[in-house]
Amino acid sequence: MMLRVRFHGRGGQGAKTASRILGDAAFNDGYYSQDFPIYGAERRGAPVAAFTRFSDGEITERGFIFSPDIVGVMDDSLIDDPLANPFAGLRKGGCAVVNTTKRSDALLADRKDATIIAVDLTGMALKMLGKAVLSSGIAAAVARVAGIGESQFLAAVAEELREVGLSEEMVRKNVELAMAVYGQLAPLELRTEELPTKLELVPLAVVVSGEGMEDVTRTGNSAVRHTGNWRTFKPVIDYEKCTDCMICYAYCPESAMSVREDGRVAIDYDNCKGCMICLTECPLRAISQTMEGGTR
């Protein structure tokens, strides 16, 4: 029996640590185990994936998991992100654990063959840790669903979080959070089946049919690449307090501050990445932050 788990999160949310906690937990529980993260330019907010395989026999695969038994989705704004595509390849009879405040039947309505579990991990993390770090919470949800023993799992949480340098107090709080999530859920008897796929290889002559020198000559195209969905927190201007001093405009590293026709400063939410430099710099504290709509 092998279980393949794929975590989807955003840089900074703890997807990689979650995959390591689960890897350790399964290892502690006597399984063969393997974990692996994949990410681009280590950018906070960018889609990240991480993988854990565990098995009672030797693991003879490696790398990206195309057909997961379980997916852990740490940020529900990723569901509609075509690059992240978190449910892709989820096996028949598989399970998706989603960090969300939405109802589970509002997610993945077209996959009646999979179990969808909705948990408000961000809410629990904010309450118990004081910040939206989700590694122990998502790992706990997946470990419970996968049937990993509690003591082995909690030992893995402490071990991994000490390794990344968390204080003993934060380790303790995370273990408490993990216990709370673990206790909320029940193990699933997973009998999964891979979705059918059809391989079509493209011959080299088709790949190279042009000259393959794609110079990009269209100007202004970076505006097309919306980066607003990288945000975990969203800056909000209180127009009662704002005097349009334009300090935020000057500091914004993404040119995501603009001036409206009425002369008021405004945030371009399509491209604001949620770095909160504007909030830090605003001399009148006229900018506050709210949790992004996706996860809260």
């Binding site: 080299l204 790949v207 190279v208 042009g210 000259e211 393959g212 020198m213 794609e214």
Partner: peptide, 10 residues
């Protein structure tokens, strides 16, 4: 891969 295959073809 697309760009490298095209370099190969060139």
């Amino acid at each position: 891969s697309y760009f490298k295959y095209n370099m190969h073809a060139a």
